[in-house]
Design a protein around this nucleic acid. Structure first.
Lengths: 175, 175
DNA sequence: CTCGATAATGAGAGTGATTCTCATTTAGGG
DNA sequence: CCCTAAATGAGAATCACTCTCATTATCGAG
């Protein structure tokens, strides 16, 4: 009952995403509507990470007229069928990214310029599963974000200030 | 310029927290007011993790009349001087916990009952710093939460459903 | 102890992302 | 082609949190 089943095959155009989406809709008794098709096109045609608002703007740019309600509803479906994943790095809005055809990864967030870099660490994954097991938890997913200052920002006054305060300008939030 | 400097000494009553708080206020030219004193008392007198709303309720229970504005302002100061840390597990509200006198730890979150368990893994910490360094980031803090189902919930229908769906009942958010 | 500059407070308005409501429209199986 | 269930759009509603601002309190200097 998993839909992103052929992760082995790597990027192969958005065809697969559409197929997975359609299969999921069918399985749930949902309908493939025009707005959903348009959103799918916009989302998988390129930008692999975005916020709901950025997607909304993009719709307007391309003269695709879709309400925010529909946009959010569609994003929810896409995360449910695991074509997208939603992340919350403590900023204003959630951050969505493609899942299909991408390896699992965690994130480094620059507290000065908010740049986000992906990284992988199989060793960390292993230790996490181990920790969960030790405490009787069946791990389902996890979220690891390292907040710091990127190389570029470490050169700037802003970046140095953040490092000095050892914190994201007063009151940073983590999880 | 760090205020939670004597982490070595473990729990020793809320005296130390008050001292640290006062030192921080003085250093920043802020004032020790009645509402701040009352909040400090409530926060460090016991419950070591809570949401802003829970704290607000607690105030009303004890007939401590404080506005939400002041409550939030005080929580911000307390996180700034590192007596509290703020976490966002993707739920409704932020989650605050005591820092002074507690070891650093990460969290396991049960997706069925929302229970939160703490755990430590120095090995993971090391690997994290390593990952950050490799990508040119100066790490400042991190956030690791493992979402899963706790032992107790794994016995329930609810828990099993969550595990099966491999997800937090439609649309979970991580970071 | 008294002043006065400056910070803090409370109440409520304001924000901003996300969700809900509901009357109207559409998809798609039979 | 029909009918029912699902989807849509527009705007109202939520909800945690922040801001505004007139009033009050703190605390160091004198």
């Amino acid at each position: 009952m998993t839909f992103a089943f052929d992760k082995e095959r790597h990027r192969q155009g958005k065809g697969s995403e559409v197929e997975i989406f359609e299969a999921y809709l069918r399985q749930k008794g949902l309908k493939l509507t025009v707005p959903r098709r348009q959103l799918l096109e916009l989302i998988f045609d390129d930008h692999s990470h975005f916020t709901a608002d950025q997607l909304f703007d993009r719709c307007r740019e391309r003269d695709v007229r879709i309400s925010k309600a529909t946009l959010y509803r569609t994003l929810a479906i896409l995360t449910d069928c695991k074509l997208l994943s939603a992340h919350d790095f403590g900023g204003e809005a959630k951050y969505y990214e493609h899942v299909f055809g991408h390896e699992h990864h965690d994130h480094l967030v620059c507290l000065a310029c908010r740049k986000i870099v992906e990284f992988q660490s199989p060793d960390i994954e292993k230790l996490q599963d181990q920790a969960a097991e030790e405490l009787g938890f069946a791990p389902i997913h996890h979220s690891l974000a390292i907040f710091g200052v990127c190389a570029a920002c470490a050169e700037t006054a802003e970046g140095r200030k953040v490092i000095e305060e050892g914190q994201a300008g007063p009151t940073s939030v983590s999880d």
